[in-house]
Design a protein around this nucleic acid. Sequence first.
DNA 1: TTGCAAATGTGAGGATTACTCATATTTTGC
DNA 2: GCAAAATATGAGTAATCCTCACATTTGCAA
Lengths: 212, 212
Amino acid sequence: MEEVTAKPDPAAIASPRRSPSQQRSRERVERMLAAASALIAEQGSDAMRMGEVAERAGVSIGSLYQFFPDKRAIVWALAERYTAESQACISAALKDVGDAEGFKSAFSELVDIYYQLFLAEPVIRDVWSGTQADKALRALELADSRANAEFLVAVLKRLRPDADPVELETTAFLVWQMGEAAVRLAISVDREEGDGLVEAYKRMALRELVGA
Amino acid sequence: MEEVTAKPDPAAIASPRRSPSQQRSRERVERMLAAASALIAEQGSDAMRMGEVAERAGVSIGSLYQFFPDKRAIVWALAERYTAESQACISAALKDVGDAEGFKSAFSELVDIYYQLFLAEPVIRDVWSGTQADKALRALELADSRANAEFLVAVLKRLRPDADPVELETTAFLVWQMGEAAVRLAISVDREEGDGLVEAYKRMALRELVGA
DNA sequence: TTGCAAATGTGAGGATTACTCATATTTTGC
DNA sequence: GCAAAATATGAGTAATCCTCACATTTGCAA
């Protein structure tokens, strides 16, 4: 039926089978996502059952599949929301940075926020845990990382106008991904060691980005 | 029946339901793992069907479950083998390092080998892709990383006797995990960018480990 | 208002697949 | 040679994702 002609938005292709156009269905989709989120928080996305999601959202299983082609699409939709939120947050935090010291504290704060978020939010941990196995999720994560790296690059170009822009891109992208890896590592060990690892990452990243 | 009294080896708990004690069954388990490996190479572990593994190994589905409690245990068993192999390789590469220059080239070579391995071996990529979602795999990966970090620490203690041992541990562990993250990132992008990312990681890691 | 097409809603049932278990066969220790 | 342990078997069970044929609601033009 519907070819890819209608929407060039990749989200529309990967996530909803059919975009909700009426208000009623938009509200129902919200309820579905809320139900999924709650179930993931309780048991993890692996144990989340489609029937349970439908029941908790107060819709039929058929309605669920009207808007999500499969189970992973639900997780993907949640992940996409988190990327949108976090990009706004990161962009805002880096926008007004004027000097190296300001960058250091802004970056440090961002890392802390990210760390705390992963510590406190089981849904976020869970949603991003499929990132190595799920193609669509991996693509979303990479796009998110590139976008965030761009925010870093934009600031660094101001702070270090003489730096090679290409190298800056590479470094920022790598450093950002390593931050994600560092936080995932940190939450996998006990709290004390995790804190130390995050601090070590900050030092390493800042040395790389704005020099020793 | 069998309590955990027999084997304190965690592998025996997590992987085989019953350790093969006769030669015949040991050979069959080998065939099962070989079949699983081949199927993972062809279609990925997610699409791998237990019935297919059994058929290809020339055993019944019941025999499969005699030695592996579930599907993930097969992947885990493959992963465990890779950790054993790689630890031997890493230990050997670092054992004879005498000075900072030697360390740099040995480390650089190790990273290259790891990168090439992930580029060339779909089974390895696949096996480690469940690392965020699967508890047992995650534990195995962390143990592996700690072991490898220890090899680094052992060398670094010789090269930098004045360095704080505790800080060295943290740094080595973090740097190692970041290497894994860097390689996973590198194989997710096109080859040229991937090469650049790996080189950037090497510079960053070596600066951190043995100074600029 | 009315009527119709598109959008949305429904849930029983199809299809797949991981895993079990009662039973049969082989090996080992003696 | 024999009993007990180890191993082998595969039809059957249970669970769950997802489909589809049909019912209902909404938007909107006549």
